[in-house]
Design a protein around this nucleic acid. Structure first.
Length: 883
RNA sequence: GCGGGGAUGCCGGAGUGGUCAAACGGGGCAGGCUUAGGACCUGUUAGCUUAGUGCUUACCGGGGUUCGAAUCCUCGUCCCCGCACCA
């Protein structure tokens, strides 16, 4: 039995030695194949293996097709786990990270992935993060990076601030701890500046999954509406509200502030409502953290003793605060129209606030007393002054015009997207290049002083930011006034690092620039990006934002970084995600050790399509292993007895190449593998009836086609067959259409179908060949003809023939001749019973169909004495002599 | 609630108008090889069956389009995923 592990080691060394996967820009057409780089843990998990199996298959395929392929690997090596390890075991984050990199890289190498290892990068290295600092500088100068005092999400366990995107159901995305609200000064990137571009350019991402695009659209959440201003009674304050439904302005019956709205406390100050309001705010804040999961959370609110005026009708209405108004969306205040908004409706019902209908259905009248829910459909305006009778859709516009003219409102656009909070109170990240001076305020570190290196030997205790405890790092001079100053101790969110790493791969060793523009322009955009769906929003949005920013800073000339995106499905076991916490992890290292890397990779691609979930099954791995063994057994070249199957095999080979190529282009790897399995079986079964020359040729082609999936075994077989070049540097085989014999294809079908149906004839009609000869064993003669006769005489099956010969372009034009057959179906059976299906009736009478049907099909009944047939035909299947 | 994706044989999972009782793999069953097991190989695996490759039933359910539907349309049921009080 071949030792696949040894074979793999051997070829991996060979590839390394000959540097076969190193690339540089050339005149050839490029293809940039990229996998999401991993956080360096000590061991690979199946998700990684799946990701890389897909990526490497694509990279190798494209390389074989003559593309200049950039296929790099690196490590997203800053981040919390290193720091947690330091807290837990006192490890130095740098040493810990780097030893992980060594280990994970070794495992990646064992898989035989065709990376250009000369381009390896790691984000925790100074050579990398110094450019983070450079970009930060540039963004700061452009006003894209700024500092803001703001309520932020804080995780008490991780002792750090979290971005909105890192808060899941009010819990920390990483550790699940309830998130607290704090007010701190933080650094932000002005991603909202690019909200429109990020949204509109989604339409350019033709090869992205619909799902991811929708998620991004929802996240950006642009909505057009109108900001309306209201005067508060007995105050000089103005309330501003945002609405997408200005048409409902006459139905306004109260107004709601988010409890956190800064104006609230100001308004109640010194009134009898002050105490109660404060209590309410406290309560809401606490609740919003605890019960956020509860969907049916009841709406709660209170009147704060103030009134405002609706400018359109001078009505005086009450001001409330309520938990359903969100501080961070729109203006933090809502104009409530209970009749036409479900949330307002529920709230008004609960607190007995008045209802006023201003839009009514054309079919029936709405009675506010009897309404069970808000009316949110289209309708006609009523109770709305001059706008009565208008269609409410038109009124959205006309009322906005009216409000703008009067100065009571203005059209605006609102986004759900918030600016990106990048400060982290952590050690293991890129130091933000800012110095705080008592005289000059926050000052950017001059370019010549970069990089700001992370100090060594931090004391990591898990309490607060370790950088705060290193005086030699903190204390410095102000670059402007040279006075005493302190460094910023916050570090950057690691998503900053991963937002441009794909650019760094273009010039990983460039010490002066983050990347060379020429090289980036050659390689970018990434042609195929592969990774998990979990990055659908965060990473992919940030990377798109960076690309646009860097374009505006003249670093690159592209708008979008990733042309095609493939989001791989999860790896499951026993129906649930394979994960440590469920204790259902299968270690890829063991699989590789036992079966070799090719089996592991092949299995990953065979068992499910890339986007789909993959249910792990040990037996399935065995199946792939057996297939590779069977394939390997083909290296024992058989003594050929004759060559009667040569032309059949040649035809099958070319058809295999054709199909595999098509399937590869669609990334339907599992089907490609299944047809190769089938082909392998055919080759094994027929090996004694194929000439040695054709046998070798077939095996060579099979290896070429399989090499992107199982590079080591195929390299070995390729070598054993006497090929001098490495299969990894070979070209993808081309098929010759002429050699694909449709007769065989059709005949094969007929064998498979045992000529049991008139559909067999149909298959032959579809082929454009002249003749197809099928030899059927004696046993089949009687039943065959009986069956055909029966089928052909039923109108239902005549219909099948009509359909088959009809050009789909003219579905309604049934040729005359076919109609005549319909009238007299007995015409066909006669020719069949004559043992020759010539379909002449069809052919002669319909000129246009000639090309389609121009063939003679001979069904020859093999006599018992007939040589080969007796041996090859089984009692149950008709044999075909394929010549 | 909004949005995205699904439902195929014992299982995983292909297949998107006729070549479909449905690829490929796994599992089961029978047989070969073998002292036996393993490995490997062959056949078989919806039901009925007078055994004729005959009949019936089949790709979540109902309805429709078509000569013809797993595939297209429509209504419904169920499942998964994402976002979620977004004004």
């Amino acid at each position: 039995m071949p030792n696949f592990k040894k074979i793999a080691d051997k070829w991996q060394k060979e590839w390394d030695k000959k540097k076969v996967f190193q690339t540089k820009p050339s005149k050839k057409k490029k293809f940039y194949c990229l996998e999401m780089f991993p956080y360096p843990t000590a061991k690979l998990h199946m998700g990684h293996v799946r990701n890389y199996s897909i990526g490497d298959a694509i990279a190798r395929y494209k390389r074989m097709q003559g593309f200049n392929v950039l296929y790099p690997m690196g490590y997203d090596s800053f981040g919390i786990p290193a720091e947690n390890a330091a807290i837990k075991s006192g490890a130095d984050p740098k040493k810990w990270t780097e030893s992980n990199i060594v280990q994970i890289k070794q495992q990646q190498k064992q898989l035989g992935l065709s990376y250009d290892w000369d381009r390896e990068i790691a984000t925790h290295t100074e050579e990398y993060y110094k450019f983070n600092q450079l970009f930060f500088r540039e963004m700061f100068k452009k006003g894209l990076a700024y500092r803001k005092h703001s309520p932020i999400n804080f995780c008490s366990k991780c002792q750090t601030v979290l971005a909105n995107e890192q808060v899941e159901n009010e819990k920390c995305w990483r550790c699940g701890t309830d998130v607290e609200q704090k007010h701190l000064e933080q650094w932000f990137l002005r991603i909202t500046e690019y909200a429109d571009q990020l949204l509109e350019d989604i339409s350019k991402l033709e090869d992205w999954p619909e799902k991811v695009k929708t998620m991004q659209k929802n996240w950006i959440g642009r909505s057009y509406g109108t900001e309306i201003f209201f005067k508060i009674k007995d105050s000089d304050k103005i309330i501003s509200t945002f609405t997408t439904r200005p048409d409902t302005i006459y139905g306004l019956t109260y107004l709601v502030f988010a409890p956190e709205h800064p104006l609230v406390l100001e308004l109640v100050k010194g009134t009898k409502y002050e105490k109660e309001t404060k209590e309410f705010i406290k309560q809401v804040k606490r609740e919003s953290v605890i019960d956020r999961m509860d969907e049916s959370k009841p709406k709660k609110g209170m009147f704060i003793g103030k009134y405002f005026t609706n400018p359109v009708n001078n009505e005086e209405l009450p001001i409330w605060i309520a938990n359903y108004a969100l501080a961070n969306y729109g203006t933090g205040a809502v104009m409530a129209v209970p009749t036409h908004d479900q949330r307002d409706f529920e709230f008004a019902k609960k607190y007995n606030l008045p209802l006023k209908v201003v839009i009514t259905s054309r079919d029936y009248t709405l009675d506010p007393q009897k309404m069970a829910r808000a009316y949110t459909d289209e309708g006609v305006m009523i109770n709305s002054g001059d706008f009565d009778g208008e269609d409410n859709k038109d009124a959205i516009n006309s009322i906005s015009d009216f409000l703008e003219k009067k100065g009571w409102g203005k059209r605006t656009v609102n986004y759900k997207l918030r600016d990106w909070l990048i400060s982290r109170q952590r050690y293991w990240g890129t130091p933000i290049p800012i110095i705080y001076c008592d005289n000059c305020g926050p000052v950017l570190v001059p370019k010549k002083d970069l990089p700001i290196s992370l100090p060594k030997n931090p004391k990591i205790t898990g309490q607060g930011n370790p950088l705060d405890k290193i005086p030699s790092f903190i204390n410095t001079k102000c670059p402007k006034c040279k006075g005493k100053a302190k460094r910023e101790t916050d570090t950057m969110d690691t998503f900053f690092d991963s937002s441009w790493y794909f650019l760094r791969y273009c010039s990983p060793k460039n010490n002066k620039q983050p990347f060379s523009k020429t090289e980036a322009n050659y390689w970018l955009p990434v042609d195929q990006y592969i990774g998990g769906i979990e990055h659908a929003i965060l990473h992919l949005l940030y990377a798109r934002f960076f690309t646009k920013t860097l374009r505006d800073l003249k670093y690159i000339d592209i708008d979008e970084p990733f042309k095609k995106l493939l989001t791989q499905g999860m790896v499951l076991k026993d129906g649930i995600k394979m994960s440590k916490s469920y204790g259902n992890v299968v270690d890829p290292g063991n699989i590789i050790e036992e079966y070799g890397p090719d089996t592991a990779r092949l299995y990953m691609l065979f068992v499910a399509l890339p986007e789909k979930e993959l249910e792990w099954n040990d037996k399935g791995v065995e199946g792939c292993f057996r297939f590779l063994k069977r394939l390997y057994s083909l290296t024992e070249i058989p003594k050929s007895k004759n060559n009667i199957k040569d032309s059949y095999i040649v035809s099958k080979t070319h058809s295999l190449i054709k199909k595999t190529t098509e399937l590869f282009d669609k990334y339907h790897f599992s089907i490609a593998i299944s047809i190769m399995m089938e082909y392998t079986s055919t080759l094994i079964k027929n090996k004694q009836n194929i000439s040695t020359k054709i046998y070798k040729e077939s095996l060579n082609n099979l290896c070429l086609l399989l090499s992107p999936f199982a590079p080591h075994v195929t390299e070995e077989i390729w070598n054993k067959l006497g090929n001098k070049k490495l299969i990894s540097t070979e070209n993808w085989p081309k098929y010759n259409k002429q050699k694909i014999n449709p007769e065989f294809e059709a005949a094969e079908q007929i064998v498979l179908q045992a000529t049991r149906d008139i559909t067999s004839i149909k298959a032959l009609i579809k082929t454009k060949s002249k003749t197809a000869t099928i030899i059927i064993s004696e046993e089949w003669k009687y039943s065959l003809f009986k069956k055909i006769q029966k089928r052909i005489t039923t109108t239902r099956n005549i219909g099948e023939i009509i359909g088959a010969i009809m050009d789909k372009k003219h579905p309604k034009e049934i040729p005359k001749i076919v109609q005549s057959i319909l009238k007299d179906p007995t015409k066909l059976p006669e020719t069949i019973l004559d043992q020759k299906i010539e379909l002449k009736t069809l052919k002669n009478s319909k000129e246009e169909l000639e090309k389609e049907t121009d063939l003679n099909i001979e069904i020859i009944i093999a006599e018992k004495s007939n040589e080969q047939k007796a041996k090859t035909a089984t009692p149950h299947k008709p044999a075909i002599l394929l010549q």
